[in-house]
Design a protein around this nucleic acid. Structure first.
Length: 693
DNA sequence: AGCACGCCGACT
DNA sequence: GTCGGCGTGCTC
């Protein structure tokens, strides 16, 4: 047996960029068998004055550090929670994003929960003892995977055998188009069974959930692990239903943000040392420490929830791409619509397109022009054709009405001069939250009593926009006796029953209806399109497409008030082609995702020095691939510049920006005690998609 | 971040 | 002569 390693190389948990590297420590004799790669440790930092937490990344017999080494303080827990695979991923992603690896590790490894960990270790020891007694050779522990009937040869429902084979080939990378309708999980044996019975598991799921579940079950049946990253909690529930229906429920490990810390840590530990499993969770589940990853699925990659809001802001899509590259697993971007990012990967041949066979075309009818001059004002939002569609469909089942905004009257304006109405106290925007309530301020909540317009002295308010609640009221009056359900951020529904009902939902909050919707009305298209953003068209297409995909086969959709190429793309169901056109435009403009972006924010001299430094470097190498916008003043003595660069030079740009951040963090510091505001530290952020809005 | 080291003004 | 100001740099 080789002598135990005496040097541990440790990643320090610190947000300081200058500490984002490995530090060597001597492992004292009593800790030697516990000091394994991946364990949490406590180490002294700067001559035993301070102690820091970290993870052992590797061990060695000797150190190549010139100075003298300190000793490891403590092994906090002998569980190797940071696996080599996840560490490599964290390091690569941090380098790519010019950030700290420890910030990625923080997303990947949940906070320790001592009680849970002890229980887990004890349970594992018991299982190991039992298995050792029965068959000493089997290292298998924990839950045994449930074989899924049909195994790997079954084709995915709604796809061809050839496409199924493509998707399940080892190392496959696909842009997987979801079939834009719902799937029935159980045969509707009893049509009279109460679909409103909420205790029953959902029998209807969006088709994408069935596709994800079938692909996951097939790969899992082959003895490999699967990770499915979904945007939100409701997506998670429908996916879990589908997996349960396929008999794979026992293999599912749930990792989501709603879990209590204990539950989350327990799930993490199960993924860590259980056998093959199917991890279902939010964006950070792409970091799950599963063994033998066989398939990584990112669902609806352009949903904003797939963008990580914490430094270094690595999008789940990018994390998945790097993890696939490192692990050689399969990778699928599964969505109803198509993001420009995924379209780019298809165009460069990195991803293969896979879509439903036969092609499924939803029935979409645009009502581009609203010839409603003679319609009553309240009905103006809903043209006759849409009313009739809804009325007909209500005989058969629930009808989905998608609106842009929640609340009753989310925007108010002066009835005389149309100036947006603002709060007399704080100048915040006014709104009416619920029917019959007075106007109040969105920000401070103050009631707008005896409001008068600061511009024209008018005292009447009118609705500047209509929200879900008011739409629901109107529809309830128009269709007496029909149940009206409101689904928005405040009223969340994962599923509604299959009986006739009007479901008014804000975009993105649409529940699944048992059996699928009998019709879908997309009401607020023009309002959604009015938003100022680089991605409006793409976002609208996604919102509409996702709503349409909740309709039952053959059910009609009415797109109100939108025409042109966008409506045509929806009618002909050509989202990839639309994304392709968007991408062409962005290439011409050098906008993302045709190029990558880095924003540099800080004191003018620091930003200037950074740009000069970067320009020096890039002029000598690949100058035409990089250009700079700005800097522009942001106020408070802060400037921001935007650097645009081609993917090919991304690594070089990130490396140099990172070096400059470190230099800046160590060299430039001032006035600790004074009342002067300290100069802003230089900040660098890569691929901030909101910067172009 | 903290904390030590280091090089210039007013003190016993 | 030195005590201590905080600017500068490092953390195995």
């Amino acid at each position: 047996m080789a002598a135990a390693a005496v040097v541990a190389r440790v990643m320090i948990e610190s947000p300081l960029p200058q500490l984002d590297r490995l530090f060597d420590y001597v492992v004292p004799e009593p800790l030697r068998d516990q000091a394994q790669p991946g364990v949490r440790v406590k180490v002294p930092l700067r001559s035993a004055g301070r102690s820091a937490r970290g993870y052992i990344i590797e061990t060695a017999a000797v150190s190549d550090f010139e100075g003298s080494l300190s000793e490891l303080d403590e092994v906090i827990s002998p569980l190797p929670v940071l696996t080599p695979e996840v560490w490599r991923l964290a390091r690569r992603l941090a380098d790519r994003a010019a950030g700290s690896a420890c910030d990625i590790v923080r997303l990947a490894v949940p906070p320790r929960f001592v009680r849970v960990e002890k229980a887990h270790v004890a349970a594992r020891a018991a299982v190991e003892a039992a298995t050792a007694a029965v068959s000493p050779k089997t290292p298998e522990s924990g839950s045994d995977p449930v074989p899924v009937s049909g195994s790997t040869e079954r084709t995915l429902t709604g796809y061809s055998l050839a496409d199924t084979t493509t998707l399940l080939a080892p190392g496959a990378r696909v842009a997987l188009e979801a079939k834009p309708t719902v799937a029935q999980l159980a045969a509707p044996t009893d049509p009279d069974a109460s679909a409103d019975d909420i205790s029953a598991p959902p029998s209807t799921v969006p088709h994408w959930a069935l596709t994800a579940a079938e692909a996951a079950a097939a790969v899992h049946a082959g003895g490999e692990s699967v990770i499915v990253a979904v945007p939100d909690y409701r997506d998670q529930l429908v996916l879990e239903s589908a997996l349960e229906w396929l008999g794979a429920a026992d293999s599912v490990v749930r990792l989501d943000a709603r879990q209590a810390r204990a539950e989350r840590y327990a799930a993490f530990l199960t993924a860590l040392d259980g056998g093959p499993c199917i991890v279902v969770g939010n964006r950070s589940s792409v970091y799950a420490p599963v063994s033998d990853l066989g398939l990584l699925i990112v669902v609806d990659d352009s949903d904003p929830l797939q963008a990580e809001p914490l430094t270094p802001y690595v999008h789940a899509r990018d994390a998945a791409l790097v993890r696939q590259e490192q692990s050689g697993s399969r990778l699928a971007f599964l969505s109803v619509s198509r993001s420009t990012e995924v379209e780019r990967l298809v165009e460069i041949g990195f991803l293969t397109q896979v879509g439903p066979t036969p092609r499924y075309l939803p029935r979409v009818v645009p009502t581009a022009e609203l010839d409603d001059a003679d319609a009553p004002p309240n009905a103006a939002r809903i043209p006759t054709a849409a009313w009739q569609t809804a009325k007909r469909a209500l005989a058969e089942g629930p009808v989905l009405i998608q609106v842009a905004r929640p609340g009753y009257a989310p925007v108010l304006a002066c009835g005389t001069c149309s100036t947006p109405a603002s709060c007399a106290v704080c100048a915040g925007p006014l709104r009416i939250a619920r029917a019959g309530e007075p106007a109040a301020c969105t920000l401070c909540g103050a009631l707008a009593v005896r409001w008068s317009c600061p511009v024209c002295r008018g005292t009447t308010l009118r609705f500047g926009a209509v929200g879900s609640a008011r739409t629901a009221d109107e529809l309830g009056r128009a269709f007496p006796g029909v149940r009206v359900i409101v689904a928005d951020g405040e009223h969340q529904h994962t599923e509604v029953g299959g009986k006739p009902a009007i479901v008014v939902a804000t975009r993105g909050a649409e529940p699944v209806a048992a059996g699928g919707y009998a019709a879908v009305l997309l009401l607020d298209g023009p309002r959604m399109l009015a938003r100022e953003s680089l991605r409006v068209a793409e976002d609208c297409l996604r919102w509409w497409s996702n709503a349409i995909a909740l309709a039952r086969p053959g059910a009609p959709t009415v797109l109100v008030g939108v025409g042109g190429p966008l409506a045509r793309s929806l009618v002909t169901w050509q989202q990839p082609a639309f994304a392709g056109h968007e991408l062409t435009d962005r290439r011409a403009l050098r906008f993302p995702p045709a190029v990558r972006l880095a924003t540099v924010t800080g004191a003018p001299d620091a930003v200037g020095a950074t740009l000069a430094d970067l320009r020096d470097l890039l002029d000598t190498t690949e100058s035409p691939k990089v250009d700079v916008l700005g800097p522009v003043a942001l106020g408070d003595g802060v400037e921001r510049a935007v650097i645009r660069f081609d993917y090919a030079v991304g690594a070089a740009v990130a490396r140099h920006l990172r070096a400059l951040v470190i230099k800046n963090a160590t060299r430039r510091r001032r006035r600790t005690g004074g009342s002067f505001t300290p100069p802003p530290t230089l900040k660098v952020r890569l691929d901030d998609s909101e910067i172009m809005e």
